[in-house]
Design a binder for these strands. Structure first.
Length: 113
DNA sequence: TCCTTGACCAGAG
DNA sequence: CCTCTGGCCAAGG
């Protein structure tokens, strides 16, 4: 059981048209305060997998870029726009409007242990 | 085993 | 709006 399994399990539950922040995912994965690990986990996700990695953004409501994507963050942006998410002129997403709020209290740990 | 790096965050100034 | 700081922890050299 790797901590990544919990992270992937949470990310997989983010519905279409919604986004979640790294910190949020970390908390739901029962890893409070370990947002960096979420980023690290997503880094090693295969883009061809089922995991909706593009629905995870940073706390500022912006797309985080990574070295290996080299500015091709347009990919993530396009995917999000396809789901109806709108960006501000500055490239920010309205968390107020699109932040995922899990209706069912995700359960946590029992599900993943 | 030590040291550095990293798709982060919240708080302080 | 900006920068800096400390904290978290896995992976790679």
């Amino acid at each position: 059981m790797s901590i990544y399994d919990a992270i992937y399990a949470v990310v997989s539950q983010i519905p279409r048209g919604k986004v979640a922040t790294y910190g949020q995912v970390a908390a739901l994965a029962n890893l409070p305060g370990q947002a960096r690990l979420v980023g690290y986990a997503l880094y090693r996700v295969d883009h061809s997998s089922d995991i909706p990695w593009h629905r995870v953004i940073n706390a500022k409501g912006e797309i985080s870029q990574s070295p290996f994507r080299y500015g091709s963050d347009d990919v993530q942006r396009s995917l999000l726009e396809q789901e109806g998410i709108q960006f501000s002129p500055v490239g920010k997403i309205s968390l107020k409007e699109y932040c995922w709020q899990p209706s069912l209290p995700l359960p946590p740990a029992s599900l993943f242990q």
